[in-house]
Amino acid sequence: MSELLRLEAVQTYIGQFHILKGVTFEVPRGTVTALLGRNGAGKTTTLRTVMGLLRPSAGRIWFNGTEIHGRPTHVISRLGIGYVPEDMGIFPNLTVAEHMQLAMHAEDAMTRERLAWVLDLFSDLKKAWRKPGGTLSGGQKQMLAIARAYVNRNALLLIDEPSKGLAPVMVAALIDSLNALKGETTVLLVEQNVIMAAQVASHVVIIDDGRTVHHGTMAELAQDEALKRRYLGIA
């Protein structure tokens, strides 16, 4: 089985609104896959459904060969899926150190080594180590949110719009970090910034109005102007 995550005809309601009307795709192991689509297409809802924060009304989701739909979020998380939500989910009252302490699932040598690696990647966090989350800058918050997901050797990371509101230099650092993960960690990335997505992702899934409409490699998409125009509003 070459895919790490597989969604099959997933449908999700939020209240009475039918948001996902049939999402089917696979995320190949060891790749960065970009989930693209217009605003309101259902990208965030897809990630939240995978994470168990929303319960799908139909369809199935496999992670690493096990069915995970309908399972509680904390169980899905422990299976090895890290999630960086769009709002980053930083606790304003907890220090950076406390964020990392809470995020680490184990306190063994391997995790500590991993922590050191993450902090080298985002050295800004070391400087803000004792600062409460509420006082961090937007870029620092984004780094913290991503560092939190990196620190456990998660097999899969779901990252929702990491480049939103970041300065270009930060985006570059983010791209470097994602490239550093390549090979050992699989990433599903929601991104509005197609240029950034093109720099890190090898595969692409496009959803429109709650349905998957395209599934392929980044190279294909780069050449398919019609597709880009139709679903992403760019040329």
Binding site: M51, L53, P72, T73, H74, S77, R78, Y83, P85, G89, F91, L102, A103, H105, R148
Partner: peptide, 8 residues
């Protein structure tokens, strides 16, 4: 929700 996401 974030606490759940972190696996607790």
């Amino acid at each position: 929700e974030m606490v759940e996401i972190l696996g607790y």
